[in-house]
Design a protein around this nucleic acid. Structure first.
Lengths: 211, 211
DNA sequence: TAGATTGTTAATCGATTAACAATC
DNA sequence: TAGATTGTTAATCGATTAACAATC
């Protein structure tokens, strides 16, 4: 299916559908309707239908989508069928957690190695940890396009600049700072504080209500 | 300042302003304007001004906001001035990373303890790890309202149900599954797959362009 | 004063939702 | 056929942006 223009909000919902579809119990019907998917995920029926129509044309009236086919279509759309190689900078607790997480393969992400200013020698989850001095050579050799930043906030910009100098085009930033980058480089900010703010407000409202 | 109705999108930007304001170098002007803040963060000038107006009335024409005062206003608005106690379920890599992260205090979050089905005895980052059997007693004793789920996807719903049974009102879920909860309970989904999707699409577009 | 900045009111934009026609 | 489901077109809603008046 040809890609139409797609909004960021649709893009963010696709992995949610994908996770649900993959997690469905085997043995049931091989079909799933947008209606059923919407109900299971607590989302709007029309929204789901529209989203699915954007990535797949396998929908059949009265029947719905073939589950397997839909999974394939979403994966292909998201580019999960060809793995993206990435490097991770900062092998602290969070960095190690990400390194050790085996689920990223399913999302098309393949972390090749980690880099750290003072790497405790050895590997983590089967992935090597190198000194940061070897970063550029590594990135050039393997033509790495994605970098994951898990260093403390105060070093994030510096690391970011290094990654860009190494030819990286997409950055997944877990440090709670805004990164300044040239045009053409995408920064995806993973901001825990943002999520916390939403939760915190909810609890405040709860507590107030109780009074 | 009295709280007006606030949209989720504003709520998500406030912590970003806060982080920047806190990280500003000392010694400069004690004032900061919405204009300057917008420029530094690469955001719309009017948007920032409107957001700030929502949480503070310390803005003075020609001068801007007193940095200290603005920090205080945002923190108060987000409820970061009184700590929220939380429990964490699932002391795997990710759970340990969160337990060990000292920065949450700044966001008003205080993780009291972690729980796990088979806890390796001892503590992590000064926080105790208990067997899950002690969860309910603990939550009741300390009147905990927030739970953080870092267990594998297949156990997330079960843990979620337990937390709710313990009186928890807000859940921060790191497992990549949709949680079914009764009304009045807030689930904040921390979905890495979502961020990855955005990055993945960007790289695909990049690669295509190159051809 | 002039100019930078604030806060507000109106216009635009985009995404979600509702209504409906098409299909098996 | 009747009914469930699809996909599309139009209406609504909300958030962002633009224009402007107010202030020090």
């Amino acid at each position: 299916m040809e890609h139409k223009e797609i909004s960021k909000s649709v893009l963010k919902r696709l992995p949610i559908y994908l996770a649900y579809l993959k997690g469905m119990p085997e043995g049931g019907s091989p079909y799933i309707s947008a209606t059923a998917l919407a109900a299971a995920l607590g989302m709007g029926e029309v929204q789901v239908r529209k989203d699915l129509a954007m990535v797949s044309d396998g929908g059949r009236p009265k029947v719905g989508y073939l589950r397997e086919g839909l999974i394939g279509d979403i994966q292909q759309f998201l580019g999960y069928d060809n793995l993206t190689d990435a490097v991770l900078i900062g092998a602290g607790k969070l960095g190690q957690a990400l390194l050790g997480y085996t689920g990223f393969q399913e999302y098309g992400l393949n972390i090749l190695a980690a880099f750290d200013v003072s790497p405790s020698p050895g590997t983590e989850g089967g992935k090597p940890i190198y000194p940061i001095s070897r970063l550029e050579g590594f990135c050039r050799t393997y033509k790495v396009l994605m970098g994951i930043i898990t260093v403390p906030a105060e070093h994030a910009q510096e690391v970011c600049d290094q990654l860009i100098a190494c030819g990286i085009k997409a950055i997944w930033n877990f440090a709670p700072v805004h990164l300044e980058v040239p045009a053409g480089i995408l920064v995806q900010q993973e901001n825990m504080a943002t999520s916390l703010a939403v939760l915190s407000m909810h609890l405040q409202a709860q507590i107030k209500e109780k009074k």
